[in-house]
Amino acid sequence: MKELFYLSHEQIARIKRYFPRSHGIPRVDDRRVVSGIIYVIKHGLQWKDAPREYGPYKTLYNRFIRWSRLGVFNRIFAELVEQNGSTTRLMIDTTHLKAHRTAASLLKKGAFSRCIGRTKGGLNSKLHAVCNAFGQPLAFHLSGGQVSDYKGAAVLLDTLPQARELLADRGYDADWFRHALSRKGITPCIPGRHSRKTPVVYDKEVYKQRHKIEIMFGRLKDWRRIAMRYDRCAHTFFSAICLAAIVIFYI
């Protein structure tokens, strides 16, 4: 017998106030439907294969798509991050998320970017993330797999909270990035590239803590619809990432 997942009443109470208000006919039980959505994303199922205990699969799919377009899960993630308080240490890194053929079979032209690119590993997306000293994600940015780490860092730069230091690998060793962090009062703990003529001084003991953001990526990729992108629309896939982060790290 398969083991079903349900959010506890305490967990659903923490996020329910951010749900859109229902109009007209009362909405189907939020706890059951959201738990079903989480089950599908975590196990990498097709929506039609969702267990019947969660109700009609079309209800799960329609709720997820509609709320993704409204940015509900993105807003919940941002609110929970803000409630989490300040941090003294930040970490930034990226990871690749492979795109399934159902997501990659797209029209090349469109009003909105699909955030899918081609690299040596095939078609994929790249997830840029910032986390705190405990390995909890604070901000995400989704891009095509071919996009440079620098461009993701430039987007996330304005979202960085006040902190004492930021840890990153040598892929982020750029003078403009170091200067931007210094202007924010953040000390960069980034090893220098091998091509640098002048060695970069950084705290090697502090740098050892960078493994926490790698662990964070690993926990996100335990959810199969995150590790393998099935969703065509970037906003839908990004909502799945935010929902996974909410469940794993904040509730």
Rank of each mutant, 00 (worst) to 15 (best):
A244V: 00
A244C: 11
Q11E: 15
P51F: 11
N124A: 14
R232H: 07
T94L: 07
I65N: 14
R210Y: 03
G55E: 14
S35V: 03
V247G: 07
L243I: 02
A111V: 00
N74C: 04
V201W: 09
A174R: 10
A104N: 11
H9T: 05
G135K: 08
E82N: 11
I12D: 10
I215Y: 09
V28R: 14
G192R: 03
A180V: 00
W176E: 14
T102R: 14
T88G: 15
H9I: 01
H141V: 07
Q209L: 15
G144L: 08
D222R: 05
A13M: 08
V201C: 12
W67M: 05
R32Y: 02
Q83L: 13
Y18M: 07
R178P: 01
F112T: 02
R89K: 12
W223L: 00
L138I: 02
F112C: 02
Y172R: 09
T88F: 05
P188F: 10
I251D: 12
M228P: 03
R101K: 13
Y250W: 12
F249G: 05
R101L: 06
D158L: 00
F64E: 10
P56I: 09
G121Q: 08
R232P: 03
S22N: 08
G145T: 00
L90S: 09
T198D: 14
I25K: 14
G145W: 10
P161R: 00
A180T: 00
G152C: 09
Y57C: 10
R69C: 01
G185M: 03
G171E: 11
T198Y: 10
F217L: 12
A13Y: 11
K109W: 11
L160K: 03
P26Q: 00
Q136S: 14
G185K: 00
G110N: 06
L138W: 05
S113R: 03
R193G: 12
A234E: 07
P51H: 08
P26Y: 00
I241M: 12
A133S: 15
K221A: 04
I41G: 10
K58E: 15
I213Y: 09
N62Q: 15
F238C: 04
F238Y: 06
I226N: 04
L243H: 01
A129W: 04
L107P: 04
G55F: 12
R31D: 11
R210G: 04
I76F: 09
P188Y: 10
G110W: 02
R14V: 04
G24S: 01
G121D: 13
D231E: 15
